[in-house]
């Protein structure tokens, strides 16, 4: 069984890129388009890793990350923050919220995959 990544991303194009990237690398994935949905899916599906966009409708990525990390059952799931806020201090904010890693948008798919592979076993 291949490992499963939860993509929390409101932009369809970005989701498509991530889908293509992850499937090409042999990972399963599930998708959420806002923070609330992301938290719900994390609880229900228990993914192996979460790619968390920060700017999201309904609930932003920081809040969603805090909630997931607040849940003891989900705390071990690594969360990689993906944000286009390239302001200094974003990284710190992401860490404060509980993110395990940080990737700035626009991300290089290659570099993102390398980051994912730091937390997951290689895909099938």
């Amino acid at each position: 069984m291949s490992q499963r990544v939860l993509i929390v991303e409101d932009q369809e194009d970005n989701r498509a890129i991530l889908r293509d990237l992850l499937s090409s690398a042999g990972y399963d994935f599930i998708e959420a388009t806002n923070g609330e949905e992301g938290v719900a899916l994390a609880e229900s599906e228990r993914p192996d890793l979460i790619l968390m966009d920060i700017q999201l409708p309904v609930m932003d990525g920081y809040e969603a990350t805090r909630r997931i990390k607040a849940n003891a059952a989900l705390r071990s799931i690594p969360i990689i923050a993906v944000t286009s806020y390239a302001l200094s201090g974003d990284e710190a904010k992401a860490q404060d919220a509980g993110c395990d890693a940080y990737v700035a948008k626009p991300f290089s798919p290659r570099q993102l995959l390398a980051k994912i592979r730091e937390y997951l076993l290689p895909g099938a």
Binding site: Q11, N14, D20, L21, S24, S84, P106, F107, P109
Partner: peptide, 24 residues
């Protein structure tokens, strides 16, 4: 602006990189 400009750029750069990598 920064955010709005980056979002499409993310797609452009992402797709072009995936294309370079022969994903398609």
């Amino acid at each position: 602006m920064s955010h709005e400009l980056r979002t499409p750029l993310n797609a452009i750069l992402g797709y072009s990189e995936l294309m370079q990598d022969g994903l398609y």
